[in-house]
């Protein structure tokens, strides 16, 4: 009985599938597809959950310096990580904000209370990310927390009465070979493993660049209430057409 209708159903499904497919990128650089963890490389390993670009440069200098030949890579990683969390990021922060942060003491990571990350940390989240380009928008799905993002690509500006949310309001455009996404309307949130926060005045610019089977993003976080100047961070993905993004179904609050 069902078989009798199968050809029509299949044809209908194929047509729907065809109509809902992203328009092939002809007038813009092609970023569509699934991207995942990059191949093992010192800088990429350091930035697999996002890093401040100056800290990445510091790691590179350590890795390439023959004076550190007796230190293993994880030790150099930790040196660069400590530099980033204890010197670099604090040097960017508005003094009063940093003092308040220190007075509050140890920060409890959002991951330990199963609270999804906000946009800033999600933009640098590890593992897979699926990006689809359409004429008027881009959709992104991240494996970490299974966050689904919608980026307007129709030339609109930010709405005047912007509602502030965890992932904000994103608009994008292309600049040559780059995809540029700007996000405003964020609520105050936590980013980074050092437990540093941003205010609701934070604005984020993501610049994606594709180099063959490699995708890089530079994330600039501007927040005059938190930072003296914009702070630039980065991470990279490798082309991973065979990978699928699984539901985020196992957030368990660890017993502390």
């Amino acid at each position: 009985m069902y078989l009798k209708h199968l050809p029509l159903d299949v044809a209908r499904a194929a047509l729907i599938s065809l109509l809902s497919m992203p328009i092939l990128a002809q007038d813009w650089p092609d970023f569509s597809g699934t991207w995942s963890d990059p191949p093992p490389r010192a800088e990429d390993a350091f930035c697999h959950i996002g890093c401040v670009i100056e800290a990445r440069e510091y790691l590179t200098s350590l890795v390439e310096d023959i004076a550190y030949i007796d230190l293993a890579f994880p030790q150099l990683y930790n040196l660069a990580s400590d530099y980033q969390d204890q010197e670099l990021v604090p040097s960017y922060m508005v003094d009063e904000v940093y003092e308040k942060r220190m007075a509050e003491g140890a920060h409890r990571d959002l991951a330990l209370i199963c609270d999804p990350w906000g946009l800033v940390r999600t933009s640098l989240a590890p593992h897979a990310m699926k990006l689809d380009q359409y004429e008027d928008h881009i959709s992104m799905l991240t494996a970490e927390w299974a966050v689904s993002r919608y980026i307007y690509m129709d030339g609109r500006d930010f709405p005047k009465d912007l509602e502030h949310t965890k992932y904000g309001y994103s608009i994008g455009h292309y600049e040559g070979d780059q995809l540029v996404i700007e996000t405003d309307g964020l609520i105050a949130d936590t980013w980074g493993h050092g437990g540093f926060t941003h205010s609701s005045q934070a604005k984020v610019t993501e610049r994606f660049t594709r180099i063959d089977d490699r995708l890089e993003v530079e994330v600039t976080l501007t927040d005059p209430l938190t930072f003296k100047q914009p702070i630039r961070m980065a991470r990279a993905w490798a082309w991973a057409p065979g990978e699928k993004i699984y539901p985020y179904d196992s957030c368990v609050i660890p017993e502390l």
């Binding site: 293993a72 994880p74 990683y77 990571d109 330990l112 493993h193 660890p254």
Partner: peptide, 15 residues
């Protein structure tokens, strides 16, 4: 171990 993963899982340093 010669290669600790400590740097990779800061989120779980409290666990």
């Amino acid at each position: 171990f010669p290669f600790s993963t400590s740097q990779a899982h800061h989120s779980y340093a409290g666990v």
